[in-house]
Structures are given as C-alpha cells and as structure tokens.
Design a protein around this nucleic acid. Structure first.
Lengths: 129, 129
DNA sequence: CTACACTCTGTAGCGGCTACAGGCTCAAGA
DNA sequence: TCTTGAGCCTGTAGCCGCTACAGAGTGTAG
C-alpha cells in the first residue's frame, strides 16, 4: 500500500505522514522499490495519532499513549493520569478563552454608542494604567 | 530609556521587544550610543500590543489596529468589523475546545470501570471505524 | 514508447516567540 | 585610574505541527 492510499484512508496529508516518520512517531515502513510500502497496522496507528490530535494531545503525548496502548497491567492508570493532566490544561486554556471572549464581546457591544465615533475597543487597548 | 526599563514597564520580554522591531511592528528607536533609546510613546505602543495579544489578536491584526487607532472618522466601524471577525474565530475555537473537553472528560470518567484494567481512552483512540 | 500521475529527498517557511553565543559599553566602586 | 560586572548589542537557531515547494526518479496505462 503506497503513501497516497494511506493518506486517503486516514485523512492525513502525505507530507504529514512523512513528517511523523521523520520525527520517529511512525516507524519507517519497508520499501517496494523506492516507495514506502504500508500495511493495515500502519493505517491503524495513523488513525490513532489522528484521533489523539483531535482530542488535543501533543505528538509527544500521543507517542507515550502509543507505547502504553498495547500494555496490560497498570496501563489504564497511567493513561488516565496523562489524560487528566491534559484535561486540566485544556480547561485552563478554555477558561482563558472564555475570559477573552467575554471581554471582547463586551467591548464590541459598546461600539457605536460613543460620541465622535470613538471606539471602545481602541480605548481599551490604548488606555493607560 | 533603555530596553530593560521598557521591558519592566510593559511586561514584555526584552527579546520580544527586539522581535517586534525586527518584524516592523515597532519602529526602530533612536540610539544613544549603541543602545536603543525609548520614549514614553514607545511604552504606550508596546502596552497596546500586549493588551491586543491578551485579547487574542494576532500581531498582524494588532498592526492594523495600531494604524487605525489614531484616525478619526470611520475608525470605529473598521475596528468593530475586525473585532467581530476575531470574536467569531474565537467562538469557533471555543466550540471546538468544548467538544474536546466534553469527549475527553467522558472518557476519563469511565476509567477504572472496565474489566481487566482495560482503558476507555485507549479504546477510543484505537478503535476502528 | 510516451505521457503522466505518483512518489522520492531535502529544505525552507509559517506564527510568536525564546534562547543562546560571543562581543561591546557604560557606570559604580576600590 | 582601573576593574568588574550588569546590561546591552547582533545574529542565529530552536520550539510545535505541519505545509509547500524544487527537482528528481518511478511505475503503469494507453
């Protein structure tokens, strides 16, 4: 299976697949001639990566998850810890964005209410403290 | 006023200030000897940039805002349009993050409920479609 | 046999910084 | 006066997660 087919099946860009190989997230597949020759397990692994990205994990975290995934025993606790940490970061970022959203929405809502076409947004950005 | 003092006053990293100059967001200040010599208006401008960043604007958008800020006339409408566009992007990103947060929280909540220490997070990432 | 789609490697760019290395300058203290 | 050391200078490279080339090679269908 050539890289184009893998790209189709996984939704990952061809360049991205090669990038993942370069950084060691995917093993270099065997070659048929000079072309990379992928098997179904590569497709699975790539889909795993992709879904990990969709959940906002970094490539490094995904690498860890990929290492943990086939293990037995304490796997779930370790993964859970990782996921919970990620969730905390996510929530922190979310809280920041919500603050920004609120502040900006408030400013924009005041646009057009000032005399002389004065702009509340600019006013906020330019004011002294 | 030397760059260190500006850094203190604005909370911007020294390297960042020089970076802003390099990309043309801040004008190159005059020199006293070989040292950059800033005035109060530079501090104002930098604070403007910083607050713009805190509202999530890109440096390019901030450049536009800085150009618009001292104008009269149609300023507010233009700024408002920019800010509204930014707000839309922000809300889209927020919606994405909330989806991720919900999905991940749901998965993590199921950790430890599976037999054989099987992990719901890994299960989600590895499952076929 | 030719045309053409696909793949290859290697490199550089994006945004928004941050982190050096290696040198220069300036003011205060001995 | 001389030295020390904090601060500044330039230039370059790195971070993440791709993406976009250039320029070459390969494989297959007509």
């Amino acid at each position: 299976m050539k890289i184009g087919a893998v790209s189709e099946l996984t939704g990952c860009n061809i360049e991205t697949i090669r990038y993942y190989e370069r950084i060691g997230l995917l093993a270099a597949p065997p070659r048929r001639g000079s072309y990379r020759d992928y098997g179904p397990s590569d497709v699975d692994r790539l889909r795993f990566v992709r879904r990990g990205r969709e959940l906002g994990f970094s490539l490094e975290e995904i690498g860890t998850l990929l290492d943990l995934a086939p293990q037995d025993g304490a796997t779930c606790e370790t993964v859970q810890t990782l996921a919970e940490q990620h969730l905390r970061n996510l929530r922190a970022k979310l809280a920041d964005l919500i603050k920004i959203e609120t502040a900006l929405a408030h400013l924009v809502a005041q646009c057009g209410t000032r005399p002389n076409n004065y702009c509340p947004v600019v006013e906020f950005l330019a004011r002294e403290f």
